[in-house]
Amino acid sequence: MTGVQLVLLHCIPSCQLSIMSNEAISPWPIETRCTCGKVGLCLLAKPLSMFLCTCLDCQKSTGTGHAPLALFRKDNVSVEGETSQHSVTAASGSKVTRHFCPTCGTPIFGETERQPMLRLVPAGIFEQSEWFKPGSVIFHRSHNHWDLLPAHLPTFSIYKENQNA
C-alpha cells in the first residue's frame, strides 16, 4: 500500500474501518475522489452487476457515447462530502437522480426511485478499475456508430431482463 493510498483512506472513516477488518485477499474496499478532491467515494464490496449504458441520458450527462456503470447495494457505497444532484424521469418511468461534485462536476453516483436500495457508480472515476468487467450493453437502441463497444458483449435494446436500474 502506498503512502498516497494511506492518506486517501484516512479521508473516509467507513473505508478505513473496512480495510482494517478485511482479511481476505480482495480488491474491496476501493476508494476514490473526484477531480478536485472535495468528494470521496468508497465501495465496500463487489458490485451486483456491471454494464455499459448507451441511453441518451447517459450520453448527455457524460458528454460521451456510453457510461460504464457498476451497480452496488446502497450500504456498500459510502460518500463523503457534498454533492449536487439532478433528477429526471427516465424512459423506464422511474425517477433517476445523478449526483456530481458541485466544484469540478465529476459524476459520483446515481440512484433510481424504483430500486432505492441500490446505487450506480461510474467506473471511470477510479484510478484502478481492473475489477470493472461489464457483462452487457443496455439501451443499445440509441448507440452511435462512432462509439466502439467490446464486440463480445451481448446487447439489449432497452434493459437486460431483471436489470431494473
Binding site: C34, T35, G63, T64, P68, T103, G105, P122, A123
Partner: peptide
C-alpha cells in the same frame, strides 16, 4: 476519464467564434 466517469472523452474542437453558448456553466 475521471471528469466524465467513463473510459474516455470524445470531443470536437472548433474556433471559439464558431460556438455560441447560452446558459450558466461552472468552470473547473
Amino acid at each position: 476519464r475521471r471528469s466524465t466517469g467513463t473510459g474516455h472523452s470524445v470531443q470536437a474542437f472548433f474556433k471559439k467564434d464558431q460556438v455560441e453558448i447560452k446558459g450558466e456553466t461552472i468552470t473547473h
